[in-house]
Design a protein around this nucleic acid. Sequence first.
DNA 1: TCGCTTGTGTATCTTTTGATACCGTTCTGA
DNA 2: TCAGAACGGTATCAAAAGATACACAAGCGA
Lengths: 209, 209
Amino acid sequence: MDKPEDLFKKITFCTEPQFRDELLQHGQLLKFNKGDVIVRDGQYVKFLPIVLKGAIRVFQQKEDREILLYYVRAEETCTMSLAAAYFDNQSTSHGVVTEPTEVLIFPASLIPEWQLKYPSWNRYVMTMFRKRYDELINSFEGIAFDHIDARVLSYLQNKSLKEDSASVYLSHQQLADELGTTRVVVSRILKEYERQNKIKLFRGRIELL
Amino acid sequence: MDKPEDLFKKITFCTEPQFRDELLQHGQLLKFNKGDVIVRDGQYVKFLPIVLKGAIRVFQQKEDREILLYYVRAEETCTMSLAAAYFDNQSTSHGVVTEPTEVLIFPASLIPEWQLKYPSWNRYVMTMFRKRYDELINSFEGIAFDHIDARVLSYLQNKSLKEDSASVYLSHQQLADELGTTRVVVSRILKEYERQNKIKLFRGRIELL
DNA sequence: TCGCTTGTGTATCTTTTGATACCGTTCTGA
DNA sequence: TCAGAACGGTATCAAAAGATACACAAGCGA
């Protein structure tokens, strides 16, 4: 791996010098393109990824429905993989890259060691577990208490905010998948919001006003 | 604390002798009754509980609704408290005892140390995080894909199975709270199941057939 | 350019669920 | 033993959301 100084601009959580050495020594840099599958349901997880750039969509699939668990973004790891790797279990979810993505992977066998050796790794793991759990509670709340129209709007606002763009590039179908509903419902709601002058609709793009 | 040999019949996960010593040294045994509040939203978590007997109901409260996160049962800990304690954050949930309960508590400040010292503690923490996350995914699935009638029935079947009893002692209101719906809806569904001869209803008790 | 795929708009119908109201029964404590 | 609380049954109404069907437009590859 070249340019370690660059790597540690992207992975800021590991502070111990020895930990950094180990990351450089055992880590391997991989690049993926949109649509690449990183983990599959049923697969054993022998390497744990930390995302440097891009995003991995992690979800479970039951029959024809899917549950979106989270996106793994820069400097984050996949807690499902982490847990599966730690216990040498098969993965119960899928991980699919949604945009050009760089990932640092390292052997799962190091996890238990690092837990004991590096406080910063420890803290990182706790942070990630906490974050994922909170995210899931949030989705849970949304689905339990909010009506879909509100969820559609706040999804769009969130995404627009994160991407720092007034336009969100998604088809109604993709939006429906994210929210666990159907295309027709989404189209209906979006049209209503357009009537209320809250958004403007284009093919494959939604502009927030 | 008296009778350490009894304690380690109940807490089997800690295997290192030194860890056991520390638990005995720093741990404190507390007893609670039904209705006692162990943690409250907004409170700092200075002690982490491990349940020896009984159950703690952990939930979040938003306006008039509540979200049931999980029950902490024998040999389990509360991951919400664990994370809050680790980061010295305020709790974002409530923990209420639902039956006579014994709890071993120890200072939150020990958690980061134990992470580094004891592999068995490490494993325990990972196990708990994993378990809670899976539980939440399950509830999520239920609420997202199953109709309430199915959720009512499977809740009853689960509970009956766990308690190894054909009868479940719950009022319709309690059942509604567990499932995040209203009493009327639960009554309606239960009556229908009774008509189908799947259950039999009594005051404060539901018998599975 | 033609035909196919993808994306979108919309109407109709049905089911599920929640809200509200009212009533009777059972239990419990003063 | 009496009043009030907790529990449970049920009817009526309305809202939310899914299912289905069809039409049309835009994009795309052969």
